[in-house]
Design a protein around this nucleic acid. Structure first.
Lengths: 196, 196
DNA sequence: CTGGTAATAAGAGGAGGTTTTAATTAAAGG
DNA sequence: CCTTTAATTAAAACCTCCTCTTATTACCAG
Protein backbone atom coordinates (compact mmCIF):
# COMPACT_ATOMS: atom_id res chain seq x y z
CA UNK A 1 0.00 0.00 0.00
CA UNK A 2 0.96 3.60 -0.39
CA UNK A 3 2.34 5.94 2.16
CA UNK A 4 4.01 3.97 4.89
CA UNK A 5 6.65 5.55 7.00
CA UNK A 6 5.01 8.94 7.14
CA UNK A 7 5.08 11.29 10.05
CA UNK A 8 1.83 11.99 11.79
CA UNK A 9 1.58 15.34 10.09
CA UNK A 10 2.24 13.97 6.63
CA UNK A 11 -0.28 11.23 7.16
CA UNK A 12 -2.92 13.65 8.31
CA UNK A 13 -2.37 15.87 5.33
CA UNK A 14 -2.53 12.92 3.01
CA UNK A 15 -5.68 11.81 4.76
CA UNK A 16 -7.38 15.15 4.20
CA UNK A 17 -6.30 15.11 0.60
CA UNK A 18 -7.59 11.59 0.12
CA UNK A 19 -10.97 12.38 1.61
CA UNK A 20 -11.25 15.49 -0.46
CA UNK A 21 -10.82 13.42 -3.59
CA UNK A 22 -12.95 10.55 -2.43
CA UNK A 23 -15.13 11.20 0.61
CA UNK A 24 -16.61 7.70 0.53
CA UNK A 25 -14.00 5.73 2.34
CA UNK A 26 -14.30 3.80 5.55
CA UNK A 27 -11.76 4.08 8.32
CA UNK A 28 -10.77 0.51 7.59
CA UNK A 29 -9.88 1.25 4.00
CA UNK A 30 -7.96 4.30 5.07
CA UNK A 31 -6.13 2.36 7.75
CA UNK A 32 -5.04 -0.22 5.22
CA UNK A 33 -4.01 2.47 2.79
CA UNK A 34 -1.82 4.28 5.27
CA UNK A 35 -0.53 1.17 6.99
CA UNK A 36 -1.78 2.17 10.43
CA UNK A 37 -4.53 0.90 12.66
CA UNK A 38 -8.14 1.90 12.41
CA UNK A 39 -7.87 3.69 15.73
CA UNK A 40 -5.10 5.89 14.45
CA UNK A 41 -7.28 6.94 11.57
CA UNK A 42 -10.07 7.72 13.99
CA UNK A 43 -7.73 9.80 16.12
CA UNK A 44 -6.61 11.61 13.01
CA UNK A 45 -10.15 12.32 11.97
CA UNK A 46 -10.94 13.48 15.47
CA UNK A 47 -8.05 15.90 15.61
CA UNK A 48 -8.76 17.10 12.09
CA UNK A 49 -12.45 17.51 12.79
CA UNK A 50 -13.44 15.16 9.98
CA UNK A 51 -16.80 13.49 10.58
CA UNK A 52 -17.51 9.83 10.03
CA UNK A 53 -18.28 8.28 6.70
CA UNK A 54 -22.03 8.45 7.15
CA UNK A 55 -22.03 12.11 7.95
CA UNK A 56 -19.70 12.81 5.07
CA UNK A 57 -21.99 10.91 2.77
CA UNK A 58 -24.97 12.74 4.10
CA UNK A 59 -23.47 16.12 3.54
CA UNK A 60 -22.15 15.27 0.10
CA UNK A 61 -25.50 13.80 -0.81
CA UNK A 62 -27.58 16.73 0.34
CA UNK A 63 -25.19 19.34 -1.01
CA UNK A 64 -24.79 17.73 -4.37
CA UNK A 65 -28.53 17.15 -4.46
CA UNK A 66 -29.14 20.84 -3.86
CA UNK A 67 -26.56 21.75 -6.40
CA UNK A 68 -27.96 19.60 -9.15
CA UNK A 69 -31.39 20.85 -8.17
CA UNK A 70 -30.42 24.46 -8.31
CA UNK A 71 -28.55 24.00 -11.57
CA UNK A 72 -31.65 22.42 -12.94
CA UNK A 73 -34.20 24.73 -11.49
CA UNK A 74 -32.69 28.14 -11.73
CA UNK A 75 -34.26 29.61 -14.80
CA UNK A 76 -32.06 32.62 -14.45
CA UNK A 77 -28.31 32.49 -14.64
CA UNK A 78 -26.89 34.99 -12.19
CA UNK A 79 -29.03 36.82 -9.68
CA UNK A 80 -31.23 39.72 -10.57
CA UNK A 81 -30.34 42.58 -8.33
CA UNK A 82 -32.43 45.22 -9.98
CA UNK A 83 -35.28 45.06 -12.43
CA UNK A 84 -37.58 47.56 -14.05
CA UNK A 85 -39.88 45.42 -16.13
CA UNK A 86 -39.86 46.23 -19.81
CA UNK A 87 -37.11 48.77 -19.34
CA UNK A 88 -33.89 47.64 -17.74
CA UNK A 89 -32.30 45.25 -15.30
CA UNK A 90 -29.07 44.34 -13.56
CA UNK A 91 -27.76 40.90 -12.83
CA UNK A 92 -24.81 39.71 -10.81
CA UNK A 93 -22.92 36.49 -11.34
CA UNK A 94 -19.87 35.20 -9.52
CA UNK A 95 -17.53 33.02 -11.53
CA UNK A 96 -17.33 29.69 -9.71
CA UNK A 97 -14.62 27.09 -10.23
CA UNK A 98 -16.92 24.88 -12.26
CA UNK A 99 -17.47 27.63 -14.77
CA UNK A 100 -13.89 27.91 -15.87
CA UNK A 101 -11.58 26.10 -18.21
CA UNK A 102 -9.18 23.97 -16.21
CA UNK A 103 -6.11 25.10 -18.07
CA UNK A 104 -6.54 28.83 -18.02
CA UNK A 105 -9.09 29.45 -15.23
CA UNK A 106 -10.98 31.59 -17.70
CA UNK A 107 -14.76 31.47 -17.59
CA UNK A 108 -16.29 29.69 -20.52
CA UNK A 109 -18.07 32.13 -22.76
CA UNK A 110 -21.43 30.54 -22.57
CA UNK A 111 -21.81 31.48 -18.93
CA UNK A 112 -21.50 35.13 -19.83
CA UNK A 113 -23.82 34.54 -22.73
CA UNK A 114 -26.28 32.81 -20.43
CA UNK A 115 -26.22 35.53 -17.84
CA UNK A 116 -26.85 38.21 -20.43
CA UNK A 117 -29.44 36.11 -22.20
CA UNK A 118 -31.45 35.39 -19.11
CA UNK A 119 -31.23 39.01 -18.08
CA UNK A 120 -32.57 40.06 -21.47
CA UNK A 121 -35.41 37.58 -21.15
CA UNK A 122 -36.17 38.60 -17.56
CA UNK A 123 -36.52 42.25 -18.44
CA UNK A 124 -39.32 41.53 -20.86
CA UNK A 125 -42.64 41.48 -19.09
CA UNK A 126 -44.38 38.42 -20.47
CA UNK A 127 -45.14 34.80 -19.61
CA UNK A 128 -43.05 33.22 -22.31
CA UNK A 129 -40.11 34.98 -23.85
CA UNK A 130 -37.68 33.34 -26.22
CA UNK A 131 -34.43 34.48 -27.73
CA UNK A 132 -34.47 34.92 -31.48
CA UNK A 133 -30.94 35.99 -32.19
CA UNK A 134 -27.95 37.57 -30.59
CA UNK A 135 -24.69 39.27 -31.34
CA UNK A 136 -22.15 38.98 -28.66
CA UNK A 137 -18.61 40.10 -28.14
CA UNK A 138 -16.20 38.95 -25.48
CA UNK A 139 -13.92 41.83 -24.64
CA UNK A 140 -11.64 40.30 -22.09
CA UNK A 141 -11.40 36.99 -20.22
CA UNK A 142 -13.05 36.65 -16.86
CA UNK A 143 -11.37 34.63 -14.13
CA UNK A 144 -12.52 32.53 -11.22
CA UNK A 145 -13.84 34.54 -8.34
CA UNK A 146 -14.60 37.64 -10.36
CA UNK A 147 -18.06 39.13 -10.15
CA UNK A 148 -19.72 40.00 -13.38
CA UNK A 149 -22.34 42.72 -13.37
CA UNK A 150 -24.55 42.71 -16.43
CA UNK A 151 -26.73 45.69 -17.25
CA UNK A 152 -29.49 45.26 -19.74
CA UNK A 153 -31.59 47.93 -21.41
CA UNK A 154 -34.47 47.58 -23.85
CA UNK A 155 -33.49 49.57 -26.91
CA UNK A 156 -36.36 49.01 -29.23
CA UNK A 157 -39.66 47.26 -29.66
CA UNK A 158 -41.21 46.10 -32.92
CA UNK A 159 -44.41 44.23 -32.34
CA UNK A 160 -43.55 41.28 -30.19
CA UNK A 161 -39.83 41.58 -30.74
CA UNK A 162 -37.54 43.46 -28.43
CA UNK A 163 -33.97 44.49 -28.84
CA UNK A 164 -32.15 44.29 -25.54
CA UNK A 165 -28.63 45.52 -25.16
CA UNK A 166 -26.49 44.03 -22.39
CA UNK A 167 -23.14 45.21 -21.10
CA UNK A 168 -21.23 43.15 -18.60
CA UNK A 169 -18.47 44.48 -16.45
CA UNK A 170 -16.00 43.24 -13.89
CA UNK A 171 -15.32 46.30 -11.82
CA UNK A 172 -14.36 48.95 -14.35
CA UNK A 173 -13.63 46.60 -17.27
CA UNK A 174 -16.22 45.83 -19.87
CA UNK A 175 -15.88 42.11 -20.42
CA UNK A 176 -18.86 41.38 -22.60
CA UNK A 177 -21.35 43.11 -24.84
CA UNK A 178 -24.41 41.62 -26.40
CA UNK A 179 -27.44 42.55 -28.44
CA UNK A 180 -30.31 40.16 -27.98
CA UNK A 181 -33.47 40.02 -30.01
CA UNK A 182 -36.07 38.37 -27.87
CA UNK A 183 -39.72 37.81 -28.59
CA UNK A 184 -42.86 37.37 -26.61
CA UNK A 185 -44.74 34.20 -27.41
CA UNK A 186 -48.42 33.51 -27.72
CA UNK A 187 -50.04 31.35 -25.12
CA UNK A 188 -50.74 29.10 -28.10
CA UNK A 189 -47.08 28.34 -28.56
CA UNK A 190 -46.61 28.21 -32.30
CA UNK A 191 -44.02 25.65 -33.36
CA UNK A 192 -42.18 28.07 -35.62
CA UNK A 193 -41.30 30.08 -32.56
CA UNK A 194 -37.96 31.08 -31.27
CA UNK A 195 -35.70 30.23 -28.42
CA UNK A 196 -35.43 30.38 -24.67
CA UNK B 1 -49.38 12.88 10.65
CA UNK B 2 -50.34 12.38 7.09
CA UNK B 3 -51.88 9.39 5.50
CA UNK B 4 -53.44 7.11 8.05
CA UNK B 5 -56.09 4.66 7.05
CA UNK B 6 -54.54 3.87 3.72
CA UNK B 7 -54.61 0.55 2.01
CA UNK B 8 -51.34 -1.25 1.59
CA UNK B 9 -51.18 -0.25 -2.04
CA UNK B 10 -51.88 3.39 -1.38
CA UNK B 11 -49.30 3.46 1.34
CA UNK B 12 -46.68 1.88 -0.86
CA UNK B 13 -47.32 4.36 -3.62
CA UNK B 14 -47.15 7.22 -1.17
CA UNK B 15 -43.94 5.75 0.16
CA UNK B 16 -42.33 5.66 -3.25
CA UNK B 17 -43.46 9.20 -3.90
CA UNK B 18 -42.11 10.36 -0.58
CA UNK B 19 -38.73 8.78 -1.13
CA UNK B 20 -38.52 10.21 -4.60
CA UNK B 21 -38.97 13.68 -3.16
CA UNK B 22 -36.76 13.13 -0.18
CA UNK B 23 -34.56 10.06 -0.26
CA UNK B 24 -33.03 10.82 3.13
CA UNK B 25 -35.58 9.41 5.48
CA UNK B 26 -35.18 6.65 7.99
CA UNK B 27 -37.67 3.83 8.32
CA UNK B 28 -38.62 5.27 11.69
CA UNK B 29 -39.60 8.61 10.27
CA UNK B 30 -41.55 6.92 7.55
CA UNK B 31 -43.28 4.64 10.04
CA UNK B 32 -44.36 7.65 12.07
CA UNK B 33 -45.46 9.49 8.97
CA UNK B 34 -47.65 6.68 7.73
CA UNK B 35 -48.84 5.62 11.16
CA UNK B 36 -47.56 2.06 10.83
CA UNK B 37 -44.76 0.15 12.48
CA UNK B 38 -41.18 0.24 11.37
CA UNK B 39 -41.43 -3.39 10.30
CA UNK B 40 -44.26 -2.59 7.98
CA UNK B 41 -42.16 0.04 6.29
CA UNK B 42 -39.35 -2.45 5.94
CA UNK B 43 -41.69 -4.98 4.40
CA UNK B 44 -42.92 -2.30 2.04
CA UNK B 45 -39.40 -1.39 1.02
CA UNK B 46 -38.57 -5.02 0.59
CA UNK B 47 -41.50 -5.66 -1.68
CA UNK B 48 -40.86 -2.47 -3.61
CA UNK B 49 -37.18 -3.19 -3.95
CA UNK B 50 -36.19 0.05 -2.25
CA UNK B 51 -32.81 -0.17 -0.58
CA UNK B 52 -32.06 1.06 2.89
CA UNK B 53 -31.31 4.64 3.75
CA UNK B 54 -27.57 4.22 3.68
CA UNK B 55 -27.58 2.70 0.24
CA UNK B 56 -29.95 5.38 -0.99
CA UNK B 57 -27.65 8.02 0.40
CA UNK B 58 -24.68 6.36 -1.13
CA UNK B 59 -26.20 6.22 -4.56
CA UNK B 60 -27.52 9.75 -4.42
CA UNK B 61 -24.19 10.95 -3.16
CA UNK B 62 -22.11 9.22 -5.78
CA UNK B 63 -24.46 10.01 -8.63
CA UNK B 64 -24.84 13.64 -7.73
CA UNK B 65 -21.12 13.81 -7.15
CA UNK B 66 -20.47 12.45 -10.62
CA UNK B 67 -22.98 14.82 -12.07
CA UNK B 68 -21.54 17.92 -10.49
CA UNK B 69 -18.13 16.64 -11.42
CA UNK B 70 -19.00 16.06 -15.01
CA UNK B 71 -20.75 19.38 -15.26
CA UNK B 72 -17.63 20.96 -13.86
CA UNK B 73 -15.11 19.00 -15.81
CA UNK B 74 -16.57 18.62 -19.22
CA UNK B 75 -14.92 21.33 -21.16
CA UNK B 76 -17.04 20.46 -24.10
CA UNK B 77 -20.78 20.78 -24.13
CA UNK B 78 -22.21 17.95 -26.18
CA UNK B 79 -20.10 15.08 -27.42
CA UNK B 80 -17.80 15.33 -30.37
CA UNK B 81 -18.69 12.61 -32.79
CA UNK B 82 -16.47 13.69 -35.60
CA UNK B 83 -13.55 16.03 -35.82
CA UNK B 84 -11.13 17.09 -38.49
CA UNK B 85 -8.82 19.46 -36.71
CA UNK B 86 -8.70 22.90 -38.19
CA UNK B 87 -11.39 22.08 -40.71
CA UNK B 88 -14.69 20.81 -39.40
CA UNK B 89 -16.44 18.90 -36.65
CA UNK B 90 -19.74 17.47 -35.54
CA UNK B 91 -21.17 17.43 -32.06
CA UNK B 92 -24.22 15.74 -30.61
CA UNK B 93 -26.19 16.92 -27.62
CA UNK B 94 -29.31 15.45 -26.12
CA UNK B 95 -31.65 17.90 -24.43
CA UNK B 96 -31.99 16.76 -20.82
CA UNK B 97 -34.75 17.84 -18.48
CA UNK B 98 -32.46 20.17 -16.58
CA UNK B 99 -31.75 22.12 -19.74
CA UNK B 100 -35.28 23.24 -20.35
CA UNK B 101 -37.57 25.94 -19.08
CA UNK B 102 -40.07 24.42 -16.68
CA UNK B 103 -43.04 26.12 -18.23
CA UNK B 104 -42.51 25.35 -21.87
CA UNK B 105 -40.06 22.43 -21.89
CA UNK B 106 -38.02 24.41 -24.38
CA UNK B 107 -34.26 24.23 -24.11
CA UNK B 108 -32.69 27.38 -22.87
CA UNK B 109 -30.77 29.08 -25.61
CA UNK B 110 -27.44 29.10 -23.91
CA UNK B 111 -27.17 25.35 -24.16
CA UNK B 112 -27.36 25.56 -27.93
CA UNK B 113 -24.95 28.44 -27.80
CA UNK B 114 -22.61 26.45 -25.60
CA UNK B 115 -22.70 23.38 -27.79
CA UNK B 116 -21.90 25.41 -30.88
CA UNK B 117 -19.31 27.46 -29.06
CA UNK B 118 -17.43 24.51 -27.71
CA UNK B 119 -17.58 22.83 -31.08
CA UNK B 120 -16.09 25.92 -32.70
CA UNK B 121 -13.33 25.99 -30.11
CA UNK B 122 -12.68 22.26 -30.40
CA UNK B 123 -12.19 22.42 -34.15
CA UNK B 124 -9.33 24.85 -33.82
CA UNK B 125 -6.08 23.03 -33.30
CA UNK B 126 -4.38 24.90 -30.49
CA UNK B 127 -3.73 24.74 -26.78
CA UNK B 128 -5.78 27.74 -25.78
CA UNK B 129 -8.63 28.99 -27.89
CA UNK B 130 -11.02 31.72 -26.80
CA UNK B 131 -14.17 33.06 -28.30
CA UNK B 132 -13.98 36.65 -29.43
CA UNK B 133 -17.44 37.25 -30.74
CA UNK B 134 -20.45 35.48 -32.09
CA UNK B 135 -23.63 35.99 -34.03
CA UNK B 136 -26.28 33.47 -33.32
CA UNK B 137 -29.80 32.86 -34.46
CA UNK B 138 -32.33 30.54 -32.89
CA UNK B 139 -34.55 29.21 -35.64
CA UNK B 140 -36.96 27.07 -33.74
CA UNK B 141 -37.36 25.88 -30.16
CA UNK B 142 -35.83 22.59 -29.14
CA UNK B 143 -37.66 20.34 -26.69
CA UNK B 144 -36.68 17.83 -24.05
CA UNK B 145 -35.39 14.57 -25.45
CA UNK B 146 -34.49 15.97 -28.84
CA UNK B 147 -31.01 15.40 -30.15
CA UNK B 148 -29.21 18.35 -31.56
CA UNK B 149 -26.52 17.77 -34.14
CA UNK B 150 -24.21 20.70 -34.62
CA UNK B 151 -21.91 20.90 -37.63
CA UNK B 152 -19.09 23.35 -37.57
CA UNK B 153 -16.84 24.43 -40.43
CA UNK B 154 -13.90 26.79 -40.45
CA UNK B 155 -14.72 29.45 -43.02
CA UNK B 156 -11.77 31.74 -42.78
CA UNK B 157 -8.53 32.42 -41.04
CA UNK B 158 -6.90 35.77 -40.46
CA UNK B 159 -3.78 35.46 -38.41
CA UNK B 160 -4.78 33.93 -35.15
CA UNK B 161 -8.47 34.54 -35.66
CA UNK B 162 -10.77 31.97 -37.17
CA UNK B 163 -14.31 32.28 -38.38
CA UNK B 164 -16.25 29.14 -37.62
CA UNK B 165 -19.74 28.64 -38.87
CA UNK B 166 -22.02 26.27 -36.98
CA UNK B 167 -25.37 24.87 -38.01
CA UNK B 168 -27.44 22.86 -35.57
CA UNK B 169 -30.23 20.56 -36.59
CA UNK B 170 -32.82 18.35 -34.96
CA UNK B 171 -33.48 15.76 -37.62
CA UNK B 172 -34.30 17.79 -40.71
CA UNK B 173 -34.96 21.11 -38.97
CA UNK B 174 -32.31 23.73 -38.62
CA UNK B 175 -32.73 24.97 -35.08
CA UNK B 176 -29.71 27.16 -34.67
CA UNK B 177 -27.08 28.98 -36.70
CA UNK B 178 -24.03 30.70 -35.42
CA UNK B 179 -20.91 32.45 -36.61
CA UNK B 180 -18.11 32.35 -34.08
CA UNK B 181 -14.90 34.27 -34.22
CA UNK B 182 -12.41 32.43 -32.11
CA UNK B 183 -8.76 33.12 -31.59
CA UNK B 184 -5.70 31.16 -30.68
CA UNK B 185 -3.87 32.48 -27.65
CA UNK B 186 -0.20 32.80 -26.93
CA UNK B 187 1.30 30.61 -24.29
CA UNK B 188 2.10 33.91 -22.62
CA UNK B 189 -1.58 34.63 -22.08
CA UNK B 190 -1.92 38.34 -22.69
CA UNK B 191 -4.52 39.96 -20.45
CA UNK B 192 -6.19 41.82 -23.28
CA UNK B 193 -7.16 38.43 -24.69
CA UNK B 194 -10.54 37.11 -25.52
CA UNK B 195 -12.93 34.57 -24.22
CA UNK B 196 -13.32 30.87 -23.68
C1' DC C 1 -64.95 -21.84 11.80
C1' DT C 2 -61.01 -21.64 8.85
C1' DG C 3 -57.89 -19.77 5.64
C1' DG C 4 -55.12 -16.31 3.63
C1' DT C 5 -53.53 -11.51 3.98
C1' DA C 6 -51.89 -7.93 6.53
C1' DA C 7 -49.43 -6.14 10.41
C1' DT C 8 -46.70 -6.34 14.48
C1' DA C 9 -43.33 -8.12 17.55
C1' DA C 10 -39.02 -10.25 19.24
C1' DG C 11 -34.26 -11.78 18.83
C1' DA C 12 -29.79 -12.23 16.80
C1' DG C 13 -26.31 -10.12 14.03
C1' DG C 14 -23.61 -6.80 11.12
C1' DA C 15 -21.47 -2.45 9.52
C1' DG C 16 -19.49 1.53 10.78
C1' DG C 17 -19.04 4.15 13.67
C1' DT C 18 -18.42 6.97 19.05
C1' DT C 19 -16.30 7.40 23.70
C1' DT C 20 -13.55 6.17 27.32
C1' DT C 21 -9.97 3.92 29.52
C1' DA C 22 -5.79 1.43 29.30
C1' DA C 23 -1.66 -0.71 27.47
C1' DT C 24 2.30 -0.81 24.29
C1' DT C 25 6.10 1.15 21.71
C1' DA C 26 9.76 4.25 20.24
C1' DA C 27 12.44 7.95 20.54
C1' DA C 28 14.57 11.59 23.44
C1' DG C 29 16.46 13.88 27.63
C1' DG C 30 18.63 13.74 31.74
C1' DC D 1 20.08 3.27 32.30
C1' DC D 2 15.86 5.22 33.64
C1' DT D 3 12.03 8.26 32.96
C1' DT D 4 9.03 11.06 30.36
C1' DT D 5 6.34 12.00 26.34
C1' DA D 6 4.12 11.44 21.99
C1' DA D 7 2.19 8.27 19.02
C1' DT D 8 -0.06 4.31 18.39
C1' DT D 9 -2.86 0.37 19.30
C1' DA D 10 -6.20 -2.19 21.84
C1' DA D 11 -10.44 -3.40 24.41
C1' DA D 12 -15.07 -2.81 26.14
C1' DA D 13 -19.57 -0.50 25.87
C1' DC D 14 -22.81 1.75 23.41
C1' DC D 15 -25.29 3.75 19.18
C1' DT D 16 -28.02 3.83 14.81
C1' DC D 17 -30.07 1.60 11.04
C1' DC D 18 -30.38 -1.52 9.13
C1' DT D 19 -30.97 -7.38 7.67
C1' DC D 20 -32.87 -11.86 8.24
C1' DT D 21 -35.64 -15.13 10.61
C1' DT D 22 -39.26 -16.78 13.35
C1' DA D 23 -43.34 -16.11 15.81
C1' DT D 24 -47.92 -13.97 17.18
C1' DT D 25 -52.02 -11.32 16.43
C1' DA D 26 -55.92 -9.05 13.80
C1' DC D 27 -59.21 -9.31 10.27
C1' DC D 28 -62.00 -10.11 6.43
C1' DA D 29 -64.05 -13.37 3.28
C1' DG D 30 -65.70 -17.79 1.95
Amino acid sequence: MAGKGLTKLQRQEALMQELKINPFRTDQELARKFGVSVQTIRLDRLSLGIPELRKRMHSVATQAYEKVRSLAESEVVGSLIDLELGVRGISLMRIEPEMVLAKTKIARGHYLFAQANSLAVAIIDAEVVLTGSARVRFKRPVYVGEEVIAKGVVKMQKGRNFLVSVYSRVEADTVFKGQYVVSVQDESMPREAMHA
